[in-house]
């Protein structure tokens, strides 16, 4: 009864919220999954452009085309999901105070992921990588871990932000 009364009051005049922080925090967060998903999208674009340069596509080429597009789509979803989880579960007010750009950056990653999924557009995929790398840089900074950039030693040989561990 009293709880219902408080709920009614809360609906009219919002009480302040506080977290008990008990929602099974697995504490395993790492932006590398999102970064690798973007690399996969870039690689798919490269392979799609190779197919596009052929004069005529065989049945196998058509099948390959479908697979590449499907993979690019799937990894676009993965980028969004991985970034969303870190943003929604790990990032809290103290991290937002230190990096006020985070909300806007995450929103821009959502939009850039959609754009990279919608088109076979290398520039769009590279723009997404730049944003996700910045997100990784901020993530490691919130943990007090320095980062460095290096070219990944496999196709599509793009620059990634890595944590300096050990």
């Amino acid at each position: 009864m009293l709880y219902r009364l408080l709920s009614a009051l809360d609906n009219n005049k919002k009480f302040s919220r506080v977290s008990a922080h008990c929602d099974i925090p697995c504490k395993i967060y790492d932006p590398i999954t999102a970064q690798i998903a973007v690399l996969t999208m870039i690689r798919m674009v490269d392979l799609l452009e190779e197919l596009n340069s052929k004069d005529k596509l065989s049945a196998n080429d058509h099948a390959q085309f479908s697979r590449l597009v499907a993979q690019k789509e799937e990894h676009g979803f993965k980028v969004k999901e991985e970034v969303r989880v870190i943003w929604g579960d790990y990032i809290k007010q103290p991290q937002l105070d230190k990096f006020p750009e985070l909300h806007e950056l995450v929103h821009s990653i959502m939009l850039a992921s959609s754009k990279a999924k919608q088109h076979i557009d290398k520039d769009a995929a590279l723009d997404l990588l730049t944003k996700v790398n910045r997100f990784a840089e901020i993530f490691w900074a919130t943990k007090g871990i320095d980062t460095f950039t290096a070219t990944c030693p496999y196709p599509p040989a793009q620059t990634l932000v890595y944590p300096k561990l050990g």
Partner: peptide, 27 residues
């Protein structure tokens, strides 16, 4: 790191610092 949180006092050490805990194994 966690912002404003509700926790239970588990211990108060000899320096007067508070050690807090959740009560669920996943806390």
């Amino acid at each position: 790191d966690f912002g404003s949180i509700i926790k239970t006092i588990a211990a108060i050490d000899d320096q007067g610092l508070f050690w807090l805990k959740g009560e669920h194994e996943s806390s």
